[in-house]
Simulated assay, not measured.
Amino acid sequence: MTKATRRGILAVVVALVLVGFGAGIGVVVGDTLGVGRGDRDLAVAWAARVLLVLALAWVVIGAASVRTRLVRRPGAAGARASWLAASRPWRARESTLGLDSLDLWLLFLVPVALLVATRAVQTSFLSWTHLAVVLGAWAVFAIVLRLCVWRRSPWPVIAAVGGVVVLRCIVTLVALSFTGPGGYWDAFWTDPVARVGSIAIAFALFVWVFVAAGWALSTQIGVRRATGSVLAAVGAGLALPSLVVAIVGLERSSTMWNDELGMLPWGVARILGVTTALELPASTGWFAAGFGTLLAVVGVLLAVRWRPRTAT
């Protein structure tokens, strides 16, 4: 059995395990998810459909370019690198070799633009708080990873992370493309099978972002340092936004978020308070920041290159 075959089998096993965990989460959360905004259904659904077509085009071009001459077209090599790095992260380094400036820019800008647009559509263009928290966490994650790579090429990990981000955005956009009497989100989530399946795939792809990032980095800096780099990036990405939320106040932050998205009825949110209604401890933000900091410290210790002592 070749090394490529073993890696492929390992990747499939990891993916199946992640999907299984995601399905379990989907069953547990049940009908508690969903934000319906019937007044914006049609506009949101069409915006999601346009983004979905563009995202699928990027993925299809990348997959088709692996074994066809399409790779010679402008931008196709970048799509190919994105697809290979996302589906086979151990090939991320080789997939980015020889890319011209256009392909490199697309490799970076397509996932970033799609992530921002998908989050904006998901919140019906109403929640700057959601965008600030989510995009801030992604930005911190990316910056820490870039620092860990340091003098080596950052493009393999950019291709791996960006490729998976595109796939995860596609899952979200499929759900947002549905419309119905109860709201664009409710119309999709009222079907238990669709709800559990979507959560399972979304969860698997979310975790696969970090698996792919570490796998891509391991070909450059080794397994230990790659694992540490990803842990440090995840920890920092969790700690800093959580710290901001904790300083501002969990109740105040949750209220702002709820006012923008309408997750809870206005009366319930104002009378009971969002944290009380959702049974969230007031110290949740501090706990999250502390856990993220601990994770980042452990990651840094693993990512540091320890030089052996020289004999005297």
Score class of each variant (00 low, 15 high):
168 R>A: 00
167 L>N: 07
186 D>C: 05
190 T>Y: 10
212 A>N: 09
210 F>R: 02
241 P>Y: 00
212 A>P: 09
218 S>I: 01
162 G>Y: 09
206 F>P: 04
217 L>T: 00
202 A>C: 04
164 V>Q: 04
264 L>H: 08
260 E>A: 09
192 P>M: 12
257 W>N: 01
256 M>V: 12
159 A>N: 10
155 W>G: 04
246 A>Q: 14
163 G>H: 13
231 L>M: 13
182 G>R: 04
232 A>E: 00
259 D>G: 05
193 V>L: 14
205 L>D: 05
221 I>L: 09
192 P>L: 09
258 N>W: 05
258 N>L: 06
243 L>I: 03
217 L>C: 03
165 V>W: 09
164 V>G: 00
184 Y>D: 13
198 S>V: 00
153 S>Q: 08
177 S>T: 13
192 P>K: 03
160 A>H: 03
219 T>R: 12
250 L>I: 14
226 A>P: 08
158 I>F: 11
252 R>I: 05
225 R>S: 12
228 G>T: 12
187 A>D: 10
262 G>P: 11
252 R>G: 07
199 I>K: 00
221 I>E: 08
263 M>R: 11
200 A>S: 15
199 I>Y: 09
167 L>I: 07
222 G>C: 10
204 A>N: 07
191 D>F: 06
223 V>Y: 05
213 A>N: 01
233 A>P: 12
255 T>E: 11
154 P>W: 09
231 L>P: 04
265 P>D: 02
163 G>K: 06
207 V>A: 12
247 I>G: 06
154 P>H: 08
178 F>A: 14
255 T>F: 14
222 G>F: 08
233 A>R: 05
216 A>R: 06
234 V>Q: 05
157 V>C: 02
164 V>M: 09
188 F>M: 13
162 G>A: 12
246 A>K: 01
236 A>K: 07
180 G>I: 07
186 D>P: 04
194 A>C: 09
240 L>R: 05
175 A>G: 13
239 A>D: 05
236 A>Q: 04
242 S>A: 15
188 F>R: 07
167 L>M: 10
225 R>C: 12
215 W>R: 08
178 F>K: 08
224 R>H: 03
230 V>S: 06
157 V>L: 04
258 N>D: 15
245 V>C: 01
176 L>A: 12
216 A>M: 08
175 A>M: 13
